[in-house]
Amino acid sequence: MFFDLKDLYQQVIVDHNKHPRNFREIESCSHDADGYNPLCGDQLHVYLKVNEHHLVQDISFKGTGCAISIASASLMTETMTGKTVDEAKVLFESFQQMVTSDITEEQDFSHLGKLAALAGVREFPSRIKCAILCWHTVQAALSGDQDAARTE
């Protein structure tokens, strides 16, 4: 399978980069964390509001980065809203599996919904860390890790 640039920069990625969803702070968040990629300088802050039933009621982010990292964070917040913390962890594993999977194998990512738009990063090894930074940051927030999440 050959990915070209248009597979990486699909319309949905370009759109989410231009108009990121949930790009705001949550003042009464229950969890939050910093994410930082020291090699390229991408910097995200992720906010979550998790209720007593371990449900992600609200999730948002702020920060600066490339189109892949911003679009990935935007799509992540859309997908994670309304999920339980356990479901979010499963989603993270599936996402990680997708972006690091072998490009020579035909695979079905339809269970990831909109997140499947990021499957194109598999062809661009140096950009996988951009797509996954926001997910590591959420993991850090949920586990109460005070140090900035890193992809390196």
């Binding site: 231009k18 390229c40 300088g41 490339c66 892949i68």
Partner: peptide
Amino acid sequence: DIHPHDLGTILDRCGVAVRAGHHCAM
């Protein structure tokens, strides 16, 4: 509206090698 890392990737796919980043001069 275009982050240097996106530019770096796009240019690379056009056969053009440039550097995108802080150039060790933060």
